[in-house]
Nucleic acid binder design. Structure first.
Length: 582
DNA sequence: GCCGTTTTCGGCCCGACTGTTTTCAGTCG
């Protein structure tokens, strides 16, 4: 198990503890940054710390002090300073920070003056009314804390991209019909295509924000209005999803969209860059910095740039940066190659039919692929070990291959490949003998079981599939489920190196429950020289729509059409496909 | 605690909204 998640958690906890203790905010931020770096890292930081401690400190955002802590963790599985900090607080106090609206200052107050030590005491003391005498604890604040505490107890965690995007699309369509609305878009982590999002951020351009705010907060489906101001409102939908709406003047659209798309870290990079150029950037525009503290837009200053994102970037000496790359990493470093687009995808290479656990026939799937302008579809039903998915025995597979070939003769205008999604068994063997695999046009090899096995075993297992000469692509390589199971945590660097050498593609499974490979692993795979496949794993016609989530994930990893086998011209794809098996 | 094409010290992004206050602290993104 990669220790990165544990390292990130420890640093977050140290940051929380320091905040509750009233420590220096910049020190807190620095620790949080280390936590984010650990979350994003694809290499196992503990392993790096054991082999080359100096390499940890060389990572951007990790200084000498944090590197020492990571090295200590790699050796002992703990951090002394972390334990010391947490010992200064009641064990349950940090959970209180998770209540929306409660920040470190308030929690500190509730603890020191109200005797709150955890969520349970908070609840009882709210009910008994004994917090009422505390400073800044008026009836509305106490009411809000009680409601938010109840929400925390019932609500889940972050929302999957696949669940949030359709909601956002519908809200954008709804708002665009309101009078006086010139532009509408969703921003935030949703626009950046993150696999999960905390809330939906919407932006409208209008000269009359008031009626828009009113329409938004009073629309059906709003369970609670969290804030309702002149230019900014926030609601919680009945589904529990929080939606924020911000209104700006049309002339500031670009600056506002840039600002609300984030990420926060990207915004900081841009602001620092602006400062170095004697400029000042906020959501109203990029202004000349005249040193006066009052906001430039309040003094009638004309911005250097504001109308479009591209103009703001240009004035900062940058090319327009796609939202998917705005994570505060190295995106401001140069001109990135154009990222893959949905329209670049020419074929679906992983789908299921009624032969295993799909809902449609071979012909229905092929016709749908054709309707969507694809040049090919690979039919890849489950192999025999996937009994729960009605996997095909060798005999049924041979009948299925014949059925696929027959369908290919009936349906014109699209290539139909006879494939299989073959289980990679726990020991790395594939689920069909080689002579059977050799009868197929296309082999997706995927792990479905034993997804909790140790990293060393997982590495050996996936390596065996990657080095198998008849395999074209490794399907959903980790087997993770978002919000479900973490999946395998093999030595990704070793796998990508092997895949690049053997020519096997690594899949981005576009199903929003999977998005596997995830964004940062796509980046690492590309850096190693791997080909990437983006497949929907469609089990029915609607599932073809999932492709956008796979493309977003690829873009977050820096994927171009050149790097994606689904986007290659047919001849190149065929040459590569036939190169396997030799 | 981190960082440096001004700096190894002295900075570290910026504004809206709420609730409780009579001018602002705290939270959020």
């Amino acid at each position: 198990m990669s220790a990165n998640a544990d390292i990130a958690r420890l640093f977050h906890e140290m940051a929380d503890a320091l905040e509750l203790l009233g420590e220096n905010a910049f020190r807190v931020n620095a620790l949080r940054k280390v936590a984010r770096v650990a979350e994003d890292a694809t290499a196992d930081l503990a392993a790096v710390a054991r082999t080359d401690p100096k390499a940890v400190e060389a990572i951007e955002g990790i200084g000498a002090s944090s590197a020492r802590k990571i090295v200590e963790f790699a050796g002992s599985g703990a951090m002394r300073e972390h334990a010391e900090l947490l010992a200064k607080l009641p064990p349950g106090l940090m959970q209180v920070l998770r209540v929306p609206g409660l920040g470190p200052r308030t929690v500190k107050l509730l603890w020191e003056q109200g005797g709150v030590t955890d969520l349970a005491t908070l609840k009882t003391k709210l009910a008994s009314g004994e917090l009422a005498g505390l400073p800044r604890m008026g009836p509305k604040t106490l009411q809000n804390i009680a409601e938010n505490l109840a929400f925390l107890e019932t609500a889940g965690q972050r929302t999957r991209l696949g669940d949030a995007l359709p909601v956002a699309d519908a809200l954008v369509a709804e708002l665009s019909k309101l009078p006086g609305v010139k532009e509408v878009a969703f921003a935030g982590s949703l626009r950046r295509g993150r696999e999960t999002i905390g809330d939906v951020d919407l932006l409208v351009a209008t000269t009359k924000p008031s009626p828009v705010m009113h329409a938004f907060t009073s629309r059906p489906g709003v369970a609670k209005v969290l804030a309702h101001g002149e230019t900014k409102s926030s609601v919680r939908l009945a589904s529990g999803l929080q939606v924020d709406l911000r209104a700006v003047a049309p002339a500031a659209w670009g600056a506002a969209l840039l600002y609300f798309t984030g990420s926060k870290e990207h915004n900081v990079l841009l602001r620092e860059r602006a400062q170095r150029k004697g400029l000042r950037l906020n959501e109203y525009g990029l202004f000349k910095d005249d040193g006066k503290p009052e906001p430039p837009q309040d003094r009638g200053l004309t911005p250097v740039a504001a109308a479009t994102e591209a103009k703001v970037y240009e004035a900062l000496g940058l090319p327009w940066i796609p939202p998917e790359l705005r994570e505060g990493h190295d995106e401001c470093g140069g001109t990135p190659a154009p990222l893959i687009e949905l329209s670049d995808i020419r074929r679906e290479l992983h789908c299921h039919t009624t032969a295993s656990d799909g809902a449609c026939t071979i012909e229905e799937m092929a016709e749908e692929a054709k309707r969507r302008g694809f040049d090919a579809i690979a039919i890849t039903d489950h192999s025999r070990s996937s009994a729960q998915a009605n996997g095909l025995s060798v005999e049924r597979l041979r009948e299925h291959i014949a059925a696929i070939r027959a369908a290919a003769r009936r349906v014109s205008g699209i290539h139909i490949l006879a494939g299989s999604e073959v289980d990679i068994l726990a020991d790395g063997r594939l689920d069909y003998p080689d002579e059977v695999l050799a009868e197929l046009d296309w082999v997706v090899a995927s792990p479905h079981t034993a997804l909790k096995q140790e990293p060393a075993a997982a590495t050996k297992r996936l390596l065996a599939a990657i080095e198998h000469p008849l395999v074209h692509v490794i399907g959903h390589p980790s087997g993770r489920m978002l919000g479900g199971r973490p999946g395998l945590e093999p030595d990704w660097a070793a796998l990508f190196k092997a895949a690049a050498r053997s020519g096997v593609a690594m899949e981005i499974n576009a199903n929003p429950h999977r998005l596997d490979l995830r964004d940062q692993l796509v980046r690492a795979a590309l850096a190693a020289g791997c080909h990437i496949a983006i497949d929907t794993d469609a089990h029915g016609l609607d599932n073809f729509d999932l492709l956008r989530f796979g493309v977003l994930t690829g873009r977050r990893g820096g994927l171009t059409a050149e790097g994606c086998v689904n986007a290659w011209p047919w001849k190149r794809f065929e040459a590569w496909r036939h190169s396997r098996g030799r």
